[in-house]
């Protein structure tokens, strides 16, 4: 049985994870190992807790953060297909970041813009009433924008 001191330490886990994510943008392997040592809590437990909540990420965010709305209205108007295309185009699953660090993809429950369904936001900018074609154009624009900047 755990002592009360250990229990107290356990109680602090989520606030600590939140603080680390706020400072570093995500929960790295190194920070989880550090937290584990500090709290004397197994890493498996910490990863278990962190992976339970949508708010925690295990990879740094991309330069362009795509949020896909999977709320009811968006779902009815085809957000599942949008997700499929996004994952295919970017070659990542939601919750991940492309290897070049450009794009990250995240699912959100509802962004409160049901009139614009299906909708995504990229770095806070909304892209409304999407269809596959429109979506591909947007992604390509962001890719090119990036290349132009480099030039």
């Amino acid at each position: 049985m755990k002592t009360s001191l250990e229990k107290k330490k356990r109680d602090k886990l989520i606030p600590i994870l939140q603080e680390v994510q706020e400072k570093e943008g995500f929960l790295s392997r190194e920070s989880i190992l550090k937290i584990s040592k500090e709290l004397d809590l197994p890493t498996s437990k910490i990863y278990g807790v962190a992976s339970f909540y949508n708010q925690f990420r295990f990879q740094p965010r991309g330069q362009y953060q795509i949020q896909l709305c999977r709320g009811t209205a968006c779902h009815v108007l085809g957000s599942a297909k949008i997700l499929e295309i996004l994952e295919g185009e970017l070659g990542i699953k939601h919750g991940e970041t492309t290897r070049d660090g450009k794009f990250s993809l995240e699912i959100v429950a509802c962004i409160g813009a049901c009139g614009l369904a299906p909708v995504i936001s990229i770095n806070g900018e909304f892209f409304a009433k999407l269809n596959p074609e429109k979506l591909r154009t947007i992604i390509n624009e962001f890719r090119q924008k990036d290349q132009n900047n480099v030039k």
């Binding site: 989880i32 197994p42 890493t43 498996s44 437990k45 990863y47 278990g48 992976s51 339970f52």
Partner: peptide
């Protein structure tokens, strides 16, 4: 007292796995 594995993820996606999968 080893705790090599725990529940990872949530809901229908839950698995039992070591830390970091």
């Amino acid at each position: 007292d080893i705790s090599a594995i725990d529940f990872v993820n949530r809901g229908a996606k839950t698995t039992v796995a070591p830390a970091f999968n």
